[in-house]
Design a protein around this nucleic acid. Sequence first.
DNA 1: ATGAAAGCGCTAACAT
DNA 2: ATGTTAGCGCTTTCAT
Lengths: 361, 361
Amino acid sequence: MVRSNPLMIWWALSGTGTRQVSKTETATARPLTSRQLAALIGVSQSAISRAFTPGSSISSDLRSKILMAARDYGYRPNAIASMLTTRRTNIVGVVVSDMQNPFYPALLAQLTQGLQAAGLQSLFFNISPGASIEDQLHAIRTYNVDAVVIISATVLNERMLTWATEGRRSILLNRLGHEDITTVCCDNTLGFRSLVDHLFETGRRRIGYVAGFTTSGVGLVRYSAFTTRLAELGMRLVGTSTRQAYTHEAGRLSTLDLIPLEPDAIVYASDILALGGIETIRMAGRAKDIAVTGFDDIPMASWPGYSLTTYRQPVREIVDRTVELLLATDIGPPQRHTLQGELMIRATTDPAGWADVPPSA
Amino acid sequence: MVRSNPLMIWWALSGTGTRQVSKTETATARPLTSRQLAALIGVSQSAISRAFTPGSSISSDLRSKILMAARDYGYRPNAIASMLTTRRTNIVGVVVSDMQNPFYPALLAQLTQGLQAAGLQSLFFNISPGASIEDQLHAIRTYNVDAVVIISATVLNERMLTWATEGRRSILLNRLGHEDITTVCCDNTLGFRSLVDHLFETGRRRIGYVAGFTTSGVGLVRYSAFTTRLAELGMRLVGTSTRQAYTHEAGRLSTLDLIPLEPDAIVYASDILALGGIETIRMAGRAKDIAVTGFDDIPMASWPGYSLTTYRQPVREIVDRTVELLLATDIGPPQRHTLQGELMIRATTDPAGWADVPPSA
DNA sequence: ATGAAAGCGCTAACAT
DNA sequence: ATGTTAGCGCTTTCAT
């Protein structure tokens, strides 16, 4: 398929000599090249290159001489040119599809900072379900990104996943069920078991469940960890509901389904669902007898007005492990990295109910 | 400064013939080059280039022949190589510093999608105040990004701003007070005037104000629009407070300062502050007599549990204008684009009070 | 309209 | 340890 490039016309025009150079478009002199710098200080061009390449054989005298000159003359190596020869870009493609969920901005922010600290740049791909995914991801290939990190891109089917990742180091975050790509994921099983344990210990026995996507790997794992532990402890599953989304509204609506079933606790597949649930439960005046748990520990979970008991996803650790894997010398076969989070006990599982958390005080 | 390249070793290995090919590391044959494709179908290499360059002089016969062959053989032009000759990257550097505020993820998501739809890639820079900003932004220069979009990067001082934007098309979003860079910004003045008008019409007269940053351009404009309109309408400013942050907690705490001053409405510089304020006001049992307004219209503002009256920032329009400016043929001198938002009237300014919004029902 | 040839600014053999 | 040379895969004159 031919992809026409929308900027092309602009380029074409800006390439001609006829346009006026406007004030902002400072008739920027081309940046100094290594050859020019070499001429200026009377060394070979390759010396310049070596000076900027750690571990290359160059005397520290020459190197510091060159680096100082570079600073004085304002020389910086042109990354594009070196990409061409080395076939390395130091760019990681970061693919996201769902920024609605407040969990992702935090993950994304830390990920880019982590990559940045490791000298990697993030080329950002935000998949909108509207257009062709292949079109949206074409830059992964034409720009030759070194690696791809896919953040829970449930919109990518198996085929697109393969297309996007093939031939490059790839890591799937928060997505399960792919044998041939390395994944880094929170320990969902442990998380949901902990939550159920906590509910058990605080005396809850009739549990409802609100799912997000019931078809995704993570969704399935969470649900099955939940039900398994429930059964082990002899607790009762009074009902489940889903709107096939991880949104506040989905949480609100699903909770409406469950309240008539008289649960004494509702477990939500994620925090944002739980926040919606809290609203419904409050409206129904049931905050005193229905406990609520979430998953993720997004910032809002700890707002006094919610004080949601949840399981914290180890974002820091996920990011660190991801960067580590990206930088690793030897990659080996695809691996499954499962990182432990932490149970955050707050008001919504208080045995006495949480009707007295601020908003209703 | 020498930047060591973390992915180097891996690539070095994958380049030699000695490494073991692991399962993931599909012994990827180098992608086809234009020269190779040319040889395959018996045309010149430049013909290939022309086929992919709209507006170049090539017969449509030859072009379609080449494009079909490209599809069959899986040829894609190497963007890196063309960057080197054209000195254009089609990459926009997107600089963010504050992803805490839930307003930015939405803006960011739409911006990348907008850029993507225009054939531009987003290289993401998330500034953490810890490290050297210059270090964090060095890729803007070495990667030769075509343009820079800076999203309310209050952490960038004037000098860094100049350094990051010089020599390239640059746009500042949501930041004011810079004569020499084009800005695209919501009409803060109109917004705050509308909010005050609305409070006036609904009978409020004793107004408190909670600011975010009091030193930023946007912060000043918002406050001054607010006070100006207040004075015009003869309303009373009972007090102001700030914690120098746009966070839920800052909103909560600042509101504690204002309640003793007996306002009948509090105007918040942003939604996230207002949400914190709502919490404090509820705790104080004053929801029936203190109206609340925000600014931004983040998703949470419309949650039934908040139902916050606010002024919607025209995110769609801001993004569209930004992309338009980035693609424009002729750029001219720095401009100030001010886009109108929309007053969103919800429960928190109901004359009867909002004590009955769901959480306290 | 097409082909040939000369770079773009760097890295990486290959010499010395 | 340093310099010389040959590309990386394109775009772009310049011929024809």
